[in-house]
Nucleic acid binder design. Sequence first.
DNA 1: ATGGTTGGTTACCAA
Length: 262
Amino acid sequence: MRIATWNINSVRLRAGLIQRFVKEVNPDIICLQETKVVDELFPHNMLENLFEHRHVRGMKSYNGVAILSRIPFVSTDSKNWCGLNDCRHISAKLINGIEIHNFYIPAGGDEPNPKTNKKFEHKLNFLDEITEWGTKNSHPDKLKILVGDLNIAPHENDVWSHKQLQKVVSHTIIEIEKLKKLQDSQNWVDAVRYVIPYTEKLYTWWSYRSKDWRLSNRGRRLDHIWVTPNLKEKITSATVFHDARDWIKPSDHAPVFIDINI
DNA sequence: ATGGTTGGTTACCAA
């Protein structure tokens, strides 16, 4: 099974890029974030031939998540966090027994101070809330995959400059500690780093504000794929698909995918 | 220290 995650930054604008990605990479499942569209206007017509099973949850202008799958769903769900119906989570149970959770964690604004920056406060609260949920819902026998734009680059080799980003939202100590607690809540294994060691620099996002993203390479690893420990040994590969960052009118995020022997 | 780009919507906000 090949599963991909991609912050698409408007699914209507980039449905054609998804088609190209599917042609080149052939994933069984794609989890999208920042679809930025209400469910009625989701571009099903461009994707239904590629993925028969689609679970979408979007809103106007902001956020929005989707799970597109070739493997049928047994059930689908979604949850609200921090009392907001802002379309940052969606989940699906597949007929092969795998449960998928797709998250779009709040970016958190510019100032890394929860007292003065409501967006950063929201990000921290969001992390606390899903960690509490994770702790309550830890079942060692379940086969689960958590993916998404978590908007945190935890390791020093997940950013282009650990020193220069220490006070930049996405790489602050408080966020990294909370992400670690979330990871520990269900003993999640970072599937991508299981394959690609922490000694290697690895990014999934590069700002649009760079003339040549490859040349400057000031990236961050914001997009993640985690699996429960019972799936760890079944991981056979992990890839950040850099090519897509070079396509015409790209998302600022590259897709990430893993292969899992299931 | 500052400004740089993009998308969706609406003359700005979020990333």
